[in-house]
């Protein structure tokens, strides 16, 4: 066992324990923070596989942006901590789903030969980030563009839903504020005009 192996067991055990407690804890904020821990440790796992780009982007996108929005929503909603009403039913569903998923994963590991792919990853001497960029913009350029387009549509849709013509709050309009000048705001009346 070398240092890398010890680190691997450390990281995986953190992932497993925090995944279990993520499901068990009652407090939603704690659950979200545990998810942060899981993502961060998965990034370390990827780093150990020499997938530096993927690991840093996982931290940057998921930990740095997506989960922050999760936490945002959870904190602002202020969900009260409550006990499950029917723990037995939950248990039944969760055990069944996890068993099915475990069986699927086990079958894939059993019947699929991973050794070839593993060799490719380890023997890659080239700059990881550069390689991924090259692949994305040459071989997979259409799928890449389609993904970007779908995201753009989602952004526009989200903005369109929020942009209603009806004035719901007393918010300031910066455009109007900039157009204001001294003349439209201030009227000077001389003493003898009164």
């Amino acid at each position: 066992m070398d240092i890398i192996t010890i680190l691997f067991y450390l990281v995986t055990s953190v992932i497993i324990f925090s995944s279990i407690s993520l499901v068990i804890v009652n407090n939603t904020v704690h659950a979200a923070l545990l998810l942060v821990l899981i993502f961060f440790n998965s990034a370390i796992l990827w780093l150990m596989l020499k997938a530096e780009f993927l690991s840093i982007v996982l931290v940057l996108v998921y930990v740095g942006a997506v989960l922050v929005l999760f936490l945002f929503v959870i904190m602002l909603l202020d969900i009260p901590v409550k006990k499950n009403s029917s723990p037995k039913l939950y248990l039944l569903f969760s055990v069944t789903t996890s068993l099915i998923m475990f069986a699927e994963l086990y079958m894939i590991i059993l019947f699929h030969n991973f050794s070839d792919e593993a060799n490719i990853v380890v023997s890659s001497e080239l700059n990881n980030t550069y390689e991924i960029g090259l692949m994305l913009f040459t071989e997979y350029v259409f799928s890449f563009e389609i993904t970007a387009f779908i995201l753009l549509v989602a952004i526009i849709a989200a903005i369109a839903i929020n942009m209603s013509k009806k004035q719901r709050s007393l918010r300031q309009d910066p455009g109007k504020q900039i157009l204001e000048n001294k003349k439209s705001r201030l009227k000077i009346i001389k003493g003898d005009e009164l």
Partner: peptide
């Protein structure tokens, strides 16, 4: 001296938000 140094810096600075959010909550 890592290859993706700039990305690493960006990732680390984006993590700073957690200290703030957790402190506030």
């Amino acid at each position: 001296d890592i290859n993706a140094g700039l990305l690493y810096v960006l990732a680390m600075t984006s993590l700073g938000i957690y200290g703030i959010i957790i402190a506030g909550w």
